[in-house]
Design a protein around this nucleic acid. Structure first.
Lengths: 339, 339
DNA sequence: TTGAAAGCGTTACCAA
DNA sequence: TTGGTAACGCTTTCAA
């Protein structure tokens, strides 16, 4: 096969038509007679031809690529530890492909400081989706200020100058806490990192549930810890050693955090849920498989991904995108099912 | 700021030099006097300029992008269920960025049939990394035949016309099985899908360990199941219902499969490890957190990612890439620690 | 050490 | 309904 350097011009010559015609035909432009269109498409397939995207991107000033940035906060371990975030990536990949876009994966450690410049002005991508608001939103805000198409997975209730899609984290925190109160917990611990925008909202929900039950601020038990299972394990193990079992319920900021805590508890033969009930957040696949199965707040990542892409496309079309709240759901399982 | 449409030519005019000079300066070409180079780089930063990649890709015929294809086999659920694969993606992302490449994420359902055409000839990417050999390797072989830069995560012992990087799966299967024999298991079940290249090798290792212990073929217990926790759960639950507990050890094809099996066993109050010992494969983060902690075969994805990228770059430079075997390690934990 | 100019492979305007 | 042609923004050869 001599298909080494076949270009549009070459194909046009083969077909005996102009490059304009071939270009239009391959882009399915109805200007071209259906018959010619089909003939040329068949010819392209026969000769194994495919359009040079670098050229068409240069010409059209559009890449059909979306950069997805994992906004990692844990600077010590630069890889991705939380399966939930990766699930979001997977769902975004599907949603983007469905709309004809490709996914350029990056993370906050790799890319430069200036996302708008690096991804958009350089014609690497048409828009950006950031996964996670992280502890500091300066990079996001900088990108937003430059006016590029941008959607952020985070807490939509947070005030911001960009479109945020995410769960109602405060409601999630509230439902989790309320559920623990309902099953009889008296001393409920919030385990997570309130510096983190989304986690802070979950924490607020936790507070609200306590207030409603006329538990005063003094009843708050917050244990601040990085949102990894390892950190949670260490913190819980440490606290029990120092203070004994001073709680009977845990609202964990994520499922992975819950798993870490559970490991520490089990090692000390503390019964779940009989001694301590625990609620996670995310409903990753493992939540159901764990023993005991983990009660958790399910985040619907499929729907979220779809909406994020829709909102991004709105911006690509010059419209203004809105923040959106994704429904969450309390999934009751054994970890809070006192027998 | 009037930085809307600043091009190389515009910047050159601002600086009072030619475009050639600016281009060279920004690419750090030593042809340009160091002083001019630095002046122009500073100017570019000041004006927030960044090179148009579509244009430079067209001109240089190089994208600096690598397509990573998740070769999913489970056509029913097109999203990614296994955290292990996503961990590989994360590690590849790092390894690629380290070498100055970007990662275009795709999966076998999205991309067309003809990967070479779609990704390489179209100038979307310079090379392809395929994660997983799947059940059928026709697409991979087709891509390999077309001579594009290609590296596959899979079983390097498998005979193929392309470079494969992966663990010694047969050894892994062997070590897992031997360990179960050593702790006293008599009837060891292999749980996984031998149609799947990598799993088949693990199965071979399982067989070898049995043979060494002069257990005949009749002692083989294979339960074929999709490599998801859900499938494993269903299979094990079903078999116990039908045949009772006819095994006392399980070699699971992956950690997720092991978790599924464990769930089914625990629900029937079968003691782990006292009644049944189990070994997983991968050593994902959850393996350690699970209760009981899962004995498993650790795959070193960080090292693997680095090697895959190196081998791919060799091909980009016109050299021939080699398959490579990544060291594995048996991690002994509670799930096989009979007390 | 720097500059002029050709050309990478498309698309889209204008003309026919 | 189709064709001619300029232009997208960069890199690189050749010349100075």
């Amino acid at each position: 096969m001599n298909d080494n350097k076949l270009t549009l011009a070459g194909l046009a010559k083969l077909a005996g038509v102009s490059t304009s015609t071939v270009s239009r035909a391959l882009n399915n432009n109805p200007l071209i007679k259906k018959q010619t269109r089909e003939r040329l498409q068949a010819l392209a397939k026969e000769y194994n031809f495919s359009l040079n995207r670098a050229a068409s991107r240069l010409r059209t000033q559009k890449t059909n690529v979306i950069a997805v940035i994992l906004n990692l906060t844990d600077s010590t371990d630069q890889s991705i530890s939380d399966p939930f975030l990766l699930k979001v990536v997977g769902d975004l990949n599907q949603a983007l492909n469905y709309q004809g876009y490709e996914l350029l994966l990056s993370n906050s450690f790799m890319a430069t400081e200036d996302w708008a410049n690096y991804f958009i002005k350089s014609s690497r991508a048409d828009g950006i989706i950031v996964i996670g608001q992280g502890k500091t939103t300066v990079k996001i805000e900088k990108a937003a200020k430059s006016g590029i198409p941008l959607v952020v997975w985070g807490d939509p209730k947070v005030d911001a100058n960009y479109a945020i899609v995410g769960s109602d984290n405060a409601l999630g925190g509230y439902l989790a806490t309320k559920h623990l109160i309902d099953v009889g917990c008296q001393k409920i611990l919030f385990l997570g990192d309130p510096e983190h925008a989304e986690m802070r909202e979950r924490y607020k929900g936790y507070q609200q549930a306590l207030v409603e039950k006329s538990l005063t601020n003094d009843d708050e038990l917050v244990l601040s810890c990085d949102i990894t299972s390892k950190a949670a394990y260490a913190k819980i193990a440490d606290m029990i050693l120092k203070q004994g079992l001073y709680f009977d319920g845990i609202v964990a900021a994520s499922d992975m955090v819950a798993f870490g805590a559970l490991k520490a508890l089990k090692e000390r033969y503390i019964g779940i849920p009989n001694d301590v009930c625990i609620v996670g957040f995310d409903d990753i696949a493992m939540a159901e498989l764990f023993h005991p199965a983990l009660t958790t707040i399910r985040q619907n990542t499929k729907v979220a991904a779809k909406i994020m892409v829709e909102q991004l496309i709105k911006q690509l079309n010059g419209q203004i995108a809105d923040s959106a709240v994704i429904d969450i759901e309390l999934i009751k399982r054994k970890s809070t099912h006192v027998t």
